[in-house]
Structures are given as C-alpha cells and as structure tokens.
C-alpha cells in the first residue's frame, strides 16, 4: 500500500467521491433497516446478496492494487486505475454500512495471496494483460449487479445494484477503449 493508496485517498477525500457515493447509496438504508425488522427472511436474503457483492468489491480493490504495484501500468494509465479503485472502495464502504444497518455481518477481504492465485496474477506480463484482467472483472461485475436485481426483495437495493452496475459498465467501457476493443454492436448486451 503505497503512493497508490495515498493518491486514492487524495482523490476520494479531495474530490468528495466517497461521501457523495456513500450518501447516495445509503439514502434508503433507514427504510431498509425497518424492512429488515418486519421481514427477517427477505432481509436476510438481501443481506446475503449484498455480501456476495461485497466480496466482489474486495476482489476488485485488490486487483487494482496488484495491478498498480505490478510495475506494468504506465504513468498515463495509473491515475485512471486509481480512480476506478477509489470507486470500488466507495462501493465497499457503502455495502458494509448497508449490511450492518440491516443487521448482517460484512464478509472480510481475503488475503493478498488468495487473490493473486485466484486472478492468475503470475501470468500478467504487460500493461495490456493488466487492463484485460481489469476489463474482464469489470464486465463480470456489471453483469453480476444487473443479474441480481430481480432477486432483491427491496426496490431500494435493486436501485443500488443498478447504480453499481452503471459504475462497473463505465469502467469496462473505458478499459475496452484503452485496449482498442470494439464497442458492442448490438443493444441490450449487458445483463441478458
């Protein structure tokens, strides 16, 4: 954890990403907490989905950290990677707060070595490899967030999931453009 994290903090604190995103995401949290008291099982099901999402955000944060510390990412790309990581940190913090407010226990991040193994970090040899990994994870996350929307009992959480998907889609689009990958030619390719 290094300059990347420090820069990330400056981005987050200096530009207010964290507070703006967290406040927005958690706008419905008191209502959700009340809902949780009325319907314990549906709320528990929503908490379970949120915890899966939290696991996904933990992984994304660590993936960007690994990429940033790999020495493979150029100075031109690094600030964008750090910005995207800061978004994922905001997602993580918002999810943790929501899970706690609903009476759940947020899952913890795994060890760095676990992520390195799971993500095949040893095979990363170039900036393009790092960007491809990031794009793959972002696309998977966008589709995951879209795919869980029908499962939420709470419409507020469904909306949060859609907003998270929008962030991940924005990340994927930027990464795909950086890699020179074509945009999807068909409409409605996400979340099908």
């Amino acid at each position: 954890m290094s300059d990347v994290v420090n820069l990330s903090r400056r981005l987050v604190v200096g530009r207010g990403f964290l507070s703006a995103a967290a406040v927005g995401l958690l706008a419905g949290a008191p209502a959700l907490a009340a809902e949780g008291k009325k319907k314990s099982d549906p709320a528990a099901a929503d908490v379970a989905i949120l915890n899966v999402a939290l696991g996904l955000e933990h992984e994304a944060i660590e993936a960007y950290q690994i990429g940033a510390e790999s020495g493979l990412v150029s100075q031109g790309v690094l600030p964008v990677a750090v910005l995207f990581q800061s978004h994922h940190k905001s997602h993580r913090d918002a999810l943790i707060n929501a899970i706690k407010q609903m009476g759940g226990s947020p899952v913890a991040a795994k060890k760095r070595a676990d992520y390195e193994k799971a993500l095949g970090v040893a095979a990363l040899k170039s900036e393009a490899d790092v960007l491809k990994l990031a794009a793959k994870l972002e696309l998977g996350a966008a589709n995951a967030y879209l795919g869980v929307i029908p499962s939420f009992m709470s419409k507020d959480l469904a909306k949060v999931s859609a907003r998270l998907a929008a962030d991940e889609t924005m990340h994927w689009t930027a990464l795909a453009q950086a890699l020179g990958q074509p945009l999807p030619q068909a409409a409605l390719t996400f979340g099908a």
Binding site: L56, A118, L119, L139, G140, N143
Partner: peptide
C-alpha cells in the same frame, strides 16, 4: 460464461 459468470467464478480457482 466469461461475461455473465466471470465476475464471481473461475474455472480453476475459488473466488466469490
């Protein structure tokens, strides 16, 4: 699989 499932799953590693 890679676009729909790849956010949480891999073939050879346990992830989310």
């Amino acid at each position: 699989y890679e676009s729909r499932c790849g956010g949480c799953h891999s073939l050879d590693a346990d992830r989310i």
